[in-house]
Design a protein around this nucleic acid. Structure first.
Lengths: 197, 197
DNA sequence: GTCTATAGGCAGATAGAC
DNA sequence: GTCTATCTGCCTATAGAC
């Protein structure tokens, strides 16, 4: 038996470093040289693992989306209460903000015009998946009488995503997690059914 | 008397082109070469008007902030109704999205880590000014009984800014203004006092 | 104010040895 | 898998003629 945490393979360590750079500086503002220096190998070696920056970026979005999907699945196993699910969802963003800067796909949304086509599609797919999950939570929360909202579950899901992404975007330059929290709290409060408070 | 619209001076035309590029591609993803080609002069000439990219960026934020402040002042002359002011405020964003891509300062917020210090300060100042104006509108709207919200005017102002910036950020990759509108409408509806509907 | 010419650096990427 | 060496291209920026 092996110890899998002691030695992640190189490709994954590259992804870790690149993800941190992408989420703090943006896709256009980090280079193979940055990653190589941090990892202690040469640029040329990076090209062995990821032929080009496009492929590296694509791998970053895929891994991020997968991890996010797993986090959503875990929320589903932890609670059935729609309000609690939404709070846990917002916490996902808060933790991202605490640790690594922007949501990876939020950052890429800003840089969207400059991205290779494959990355663009994956970024949209990320938002779509989030929307579907949230819309499901909202719909069940409404029939539960735990949540209350006037527009469609899909539109409301989109508003939640927008608000949280925007709250990250603005809170980060100030370096104040509290700015994010204030907005997230106000958002969730506006969705809670009066009877469930 | 001169015809001021026919021939803006070169510095201003540079700013126009650079602003468009910044708002669609980002500060790190456009170059002096891009601007020069679009304007039909050489890169070297640009350096006469703006010594470095930092100065150009700084001028872009300053002009944008000024224009935004003027737009807010104009809203104040057009209506006294707080709900109408908020709707007009959201329209400012919608028009930006329609024409040129992201809010200039929203884009720079994403790239914040990579910006020169002077630009960073100006970006924060932009958000601060927006917050002050919005908080004033919210406060008067609440005493008017035109608006209703539970948190402080400042926190609510921050939530409005975050939501609109986020809505732009996410709507733009989809190329769907309607995504922005849906979120903006839901946001404003949530702030309207029940009696004022 | 705008040009030509050029500097110096860093970007992403490849070839081929080990 | 990782290295050295190298390529090509673009970046910001400057000097100096017109």
């Amino acid at each position: 038996m092996r110890a899998p945490k002691d030695k992640r393979d190189t490709a994954e360590r590259i992804l870790d470093i690149a993800e941190e750079l992408l989420r703090t500086r943006g896709f256009n503002a980090f280079s193979y040289a940055d990653v190589a220096a941090e990892l202690g190998i040469t640029k040329a070696s990076l090209h062995y693992h990821f032929p080009g920056k496009g492929e590296l970026g694509q791998a970053l979005v895929s891994r991020y989306s997968l991890r996010f999907a797993e986090a959503l699945a875990e929320i589903d196993t932890e609670t059935d209460d729609a309000s609690a699910k939404l709070a846990a969802y917002a916490d996902l963003y808060a933790n991202a903000l605490r640790g690594h800067g922007m949501c990876l796909c939020g950052m890429l949304a800003a840089e969207y015009e400059t991205l290779p086509p494959a990355m663009r599609e994956s970024v949209l797919a990320f938002f779509d998946e989030n929307e579907v999950w949230l819309a499901g939570v909202l719909e069940r929360g409404r029939s539960d009488d735990r949540l209350e909202f006037e527009r469609s579950p899909s539109d409301t899901a989109r508003m939640i995503i927008s608000t949280l992404e925007g709250a990250m975007l603005v809170a980060r330059p100030y370096g104040e997690l509290s700015r994010f929290q204030a907005t997230a709290t106000a958002l969730l409060a506006g969705l809670a059914a009066p009877g469930a408070r």
